[in-house]
Computed example of a mutant assay.
Amino acid sequence: MAIRFSRIIQAKQLLRRSSFGSNNNANAATTSADVPRGYCAVYVGESERKRHVIPIAYLNQPSFQNLLRQAEEEFGYDHPMGGLTIPCREDIFIDLTSRFCRV
């Protein structure tokens, strides 16, 4: 339980830093402005990254935790897109997140 909670805290801190911290990112102002409260933006894809806005509640899902572990292994917490990058195919990500809505 503590491991999951710490990963959620780290992911939230990363998202907060990527949204507000850097003026080098040209999309920083628009990124933070168009993400509603209770949601976060993630980038998904293997070669071409596409932005998705998801509920923060997804971070608690065990299958999403696996994606976070993969992201940590591949990128650490310094993501090339300036936000949380999920290293999986977009169709797999959409299939996975659509299952969360049915539960």
Score class of each variant (00 low, 15 high):
residue 1 M to Y: 14
residue 2 A to C: 11
residue 3 I to S: 10
residue 5 F to R: 14
residue 6 S to L: 10
residue 6 S to P: 02
residue 6 S to G: 03
residue 7 R to Q: 06
residue 11 A to P: 05
residue 13 Q to A: 11
residue 13 Q to S: 07
residue 13 Q to P: 00
residue 14 L to I: 11
residue 14 L to Q: 06
residue 15 L to H: 02
residue 15 L to Y: 01
residue 16 R to M: 12
residue 16 R to W: 05
residue 17 R to W: 05
residue 17 R to E: 13
residue 18 S to Q: 07
residue 19 S to T: 07
residue 19 S to E: 12
residue 19 S to P: 00
residue 20 F to E: 03
residue 20 F to T: 04
residue 20 F to N: 14
residue 21 G to K: 14
residue 21 G to E: 02
residue 21 G to C: 07
residue 22 S to P: 02
residue 24 N to A: 12
residue 25 N to A: 15
residue 26 A to E: 14
residue 29 A to N: 11
residue 32 S to P: 01
residue 33 A to C: 12
residue 34 D to S: 13
residue 35 V to S: 04
residue 36 P to H: 07
residue 36 P to F: 03
residue 37 R to T: 06
residue 37 R to D: 12
residue 39 Y to Q: 11
residue 39 Y to P: 02
residue 40 C to D: 01
residue 40 C to R: 00
residue 40 C to Q: 02
residue 41 A to N: 04
residue 41 A to P: 03
residue 43 Y to T: 06
residue 44 V to M: 06
residue 44 V to D: 04
residue 45 G to M: 11
residue 46 E to I: 11
residue 47 S to G: 08
residue 48 E to P: 00
residue 51 R to Y: 10
residue 51 R to F: 06
residue 52 H to V: 01
residue 52 H to M: 10
residue 55 P to Y: 07
residue 59 L to M: 14
residue 59 L to K: 01
residue 61 Q to L: 15
residue 61 Q to A: 06
residue 64 F to A: 11
residue 64 F to M: 09
residue 65 Q to N: 13
residue 65 Q to S: 11
residue 65 Q to A: 12
residue 66 N to W: 05
residue 66 N to C: 10
residue 70 Q to I: 08
residue 70 Q to C: 14
residue 71 A to G: 08
residue 72 E to W: 13
residue 73 E to T: 08
residue 73 E to N: 11
residue 74 E to N: 15
residue 75 F to Q: 08
residue 76 G to E: 08
residue 76 G to F: 05
residue 77 Y to C: 04
residue 77 Y to K: 00
residue 78 D to W: 03
residue 79 H to W: 05
residue 81 M to C: 13
residue 81 M to R: 15
residue 84 L to A: 01
residue 84 L to T: 10
residue 84 L to P: 02
residue 85 T to D: 15
residue 85 T to Y: 08
residue 86 I to T: 02
residue 87 P to L: 05
residue 89 R to E: 15
residue 93 F to Q: 04
residue 94 I to A: 06
residue 94 I to E: 11
residue 94 I to R: 12
residue 96 L to G: 02
residue 97 T to D: 00
residue 97 T to A: 02
residue 98 S to R: 08
residue 99 R to S: 04
residue 100 F to R: 10
residue 101 C to R: 09
residue 103 V to E: 04
residue 103 V to G: 07
